[in-house]
Design a protein around this nucleic acid. Structure first.
Length: 713
DNA sequence: CTGGGGAGGGGGCCC
DNA sequence: GGGGCCCCCTCCCCA
């Protein structure tokens, strides 16, 4: 009967097709990062092959594998096995990984990886082969207890050191030959480079560097990296291996990806066998493996490169807010354990044995001030400390206090855990955490209650001109903006509608950013920004224009782009009537107006600099404000980029202000609250200046008025 | 050559 | 976590 008939070779053919697609990146929906190598694959295939990977792919499109357990070369073999059902024999495997003499992924390493990834078929195959070669027992005997991965988990320094960083495609003779196991032995797909879906990141170099020209990375890689090929990415001058170096021993744990975030040219010559160095620094039993050695506390400043790297490579669980973390964990050390636990969720990954809250002198006395300015600057570089002062975990930098601001260095004696806002020092992170939590509760209670009380009382901030406006400054709730945004940042006075957003914002004040790019090491304050950044590395452009086929990394870009085709130009200049398809171009255009046409008023306004838009309450600037400036400013403000959600609030405020307009003096005096509110809306100084100068430009004329002192009283 | 506009792209940040 | 928006930089084209 038909239902019992079976197409011969169907499954084989299916697998071949899948592998073929993988090589082209076609329909690949997951990226696996192993050290600095990238592999593209299909979630379904991974999930069908590995219980561990299955558990990961359901949550993420970007997987970070512990490179202590799986080296790039080994994972390549594993991935080949998954897609072909074949495993290169020892010689082949060695050849496949013959990236450097004496470096090959041993069968033991593959077995370890297979165990780690929970691929029973591959485990069995490896064991079988090991037995055949009479090595299985030996390898097995060398292993540690517990996780049992110790012997295999470290594929060997030779392998690590030899694994090329850039070997996106092997088609070039210069590149390492593809592992025979990866190559379908026969058939049309045999000609396809099985490893084209594997890319290697090259330090801070963007994805274009993934395809070194000498490797002749073909388009089959499936990554559209053509858009951005930064100079220098094309030809790695340094030995490839340098790009996958573990952090230097003096780099902080948080700087786990230091090796990646350092600008390539800034990298000093590195030892030829980085992994050896790493192993020298790390005790043989991986302390971060439950089964390994002592999971004991990590001494502060422990220059353990491997651990740093290990932690960094962990698949990072979603990070909650700081206080959430505090509630859940209580200490940075504990939190790191949790991070390890994320791998522990994996079969072979017992929780990391990280422990002790390290001290954070780097956060306290390091020249971290302004460190944020340089995304590539590692904290170790910032501190210049030989002792590793950084907190555990790449995204725990600046952990000591979420309020951590760019304060001046201070000495706190033994109380190295310092809350920046209040300056109190604590001897332990736990105490600081408790203190910080009290801060948060305090602020929430303060602002929440105050706002509620104020609203109930009729809201002093609503009185003309807005409750005195200028005296409603930080700490004192009041004003429409504060009513709308009761959650205020202790560091910068910005306020938000909900505490989650406030917590999110507070991360921007941390000395270092919690989310490093696993490719280039650049750090971000938000995970979403980091993943978006990763897309640029990987050339992922999910949003395609139906009209021209152009692809974008963001929906918003596509929306903008579509206006090109539709001819829609919704942004109109109130000055010259020019229309623009993109708001940014209108803004740019209006800058031109402001510079060229606003005469003294615009110049003065544009030079306000300090507070957004206008002088602060104590401002004494002598500014020319023509009578109609506010009306025009209002129009311009509406036209400009007031966020949609704030437009209603702005309209409300403006409506309240409008009735002052018939009185020029009052209208002008209203400018300050307007500007203040504008600032609260998050307009930049430039934009606020534009708003005002735009108005000034329009209304500037012989009847322009001069205000000697402009500040609310 | 220069200024202005159009547009792609990346990061920051808020919702 | 994703979406959306803002800001900035940059490149290209054209007058």
């Amino acid at each position: 009967m038909l239902d019992t008939m079976e197409a011969p070779g169907h499954s084989r053919q299916l697998l071949l097709q899948l592998n073929n697609q993988r090589t082209k990146g076609f329909l690949c929906d997951v990226i696996i990062v192993v050290q600095n190598a990238l592999f593209r694959a299909h979630k379904n295939v991974l999930a069908a092959s590995s219980a561990y990977l299955k558990s990961l792919v359901v949550h993420d499109n970007l997987l970070n594998l512990d490179h202590d357990m799986v080296s790039p070369a080994v994972f390549r073999l594993v991935l080949d096995f998954i897609y072909t059902g074949r495993l290169a024999d020892g010689a082949e495997a060695a050849a496949a990984a013959a990236v450097a003499p004496g470096a090959e992924p041993s069968l033991g390493a593959v077995l370890a990886a297979a165990s780690y990834l929970q691929i029973p078929d591959l485990v069995a195959l490896c064991k079988k082969r090991l037995k055949r070669h009479g090595k299985y027992c030996h390898l097995r005997g060398g292993g540690g207890g517990g996780g049992g991965y110790a012997p295999y988990g470290r594929p060997g320094r030779g392998l690590r050191a030899a694994t090329p960083v850039i070997q996106a495609c092997y088609s070039s003779p210069a590149g390492p030959p593809p592992p025979p196991a990866a190559e379908p032995p026969s058939g049309p797909e045999a000609a396809v480079n099985t490893h084209c879906a594997e890319l290697y990141a090259s330090g801070p170099g963007p994805a274009a560097a993934l395809c070194a020209p000498e490797r002749r990375c073909s388009p089959l890689c499936g990554l559209d990296l053509s858009k951005k090929s930064p100079p220098g990415s094309a030809a790695p001058e340094r030995p490839l291996g340098e790009r996958e170096l573990p952090p230097r021993p003096d780099s902080s744990p948080s700087a786990g990806p230091t090796a990646y975030k350092e600008p390539p040219l800034a990298l000093p010559p590195l030892p030829p066998l980085p992994f050896q160095k790493l192993e020298e620094a790390a005790p043989p039993p991986d302390p971060f493996r439950g089964g390994g050695g002592s999971p004991g506390p990590e001494p502060p400043g422990r220059p353990d490169g491997s651990s740093l790297l290990y932690r960094w490579m962990k698949h990072e669980p979603g990070l909650g807010s700081y206080d959430e973390l505090v509630r859940e964990r209580g200490s940075p050390g504990e939190r790191c354990e949790e991070r390890g636990g994320d791998v522990a969720a994996s079969p072979g990954g017992p929780p990391l044995g990280l422990a002790p809250p390290p001290r954070y002198p780097g956060s306290l006395d390091g020249p971290g001030t302004g460190g944020d300015g340089d995304d590539y600057k590692s904290s170790s570089e910032e501190t210049g400390s030989s002792e590793d002062p950084s907190p555990p975990g790449g995204h725990l930098e600046g952990y000591p206090c979420p309020h951590l601001a760019y304060g001046e260095p201070e000495s706190f004696g033994d109380n190295l855990y310092v809350c920046i806002p209040c300056g109190k020092g604590f001897p332990s992170s736990e105490q600081l955490n408790a203190h910080v939590e009290a801060h948060v509760e305090e602020e929430e209670a303060l602002y929440g209650r105050a706002e509620v009380a104020e609203v109930a009382a009729g809201g002093p901030g609503l009185g003309p001109p807005f409750g005195g406006g200028g005296d409603k400054v930080a700490g004192a709730p009041g004003g429409l903006g504060e009513l709308l945004r009761p959650y205020r940042c202790a560091s910068c006075d910005k306020s938000y509608k909900d505490p989650a957003t406030l917590r999110q914002h507070e991360k921007t004040h941390w000395l270092t950013r919690p989310y490093p790019c696993t490719i280039c090491g650049k750090k971000f304050t938000q995970r979403g920004t980091m993943t978006r950044h990763m897309r640029s590395h990987l050339g992922l452009k999910p949003f395609a224009c139906d009209a021209c086929g152009m692809r974008f990394t963001r929906q918003y870009r596509l929306t903008e782009h579509m206006r090109i085709h539709s001819g829609e130009k919704p942004y109109e200049c109130q000055v010259c009537g020019g229309k623009f398809a993109q708001q940014r171009n209108l803004i740019s255009h209006m800058k031109m107006h402001a510079v060229g046409g606003a005469a003294g008023a615009a110049g003065a306004l544009a030079g306000l600099g300090g507070l957004p838009g206008v002088p602060g309450p104590d401002g004494k600037g002598k500014l020319d404000f023509p009578e109609g400036v506010f009306a025009v400013a209002r129009l311009t403000a509406e036209q400009l980029s007031l966020k949609q959600q704030d437009k209603a609030a702005a309209a409300e405020l403006l409506a309240q202000t409008t009735h002052f307009l018939h009185d020029p003096k009052v209208a002008l005096e209203s400018l300050y609250p307007l500007a203040k509110f504008t600032a609260e809306l998050g307009l930049s100084p430039d934009k606020a200046a534009e708003v005002l100068s735009q108005g000034a430009h329009l209304a500037a004329g012989p009847d322009g008025r001069t205000i000697d002192r402009f500040s609310p009283t």
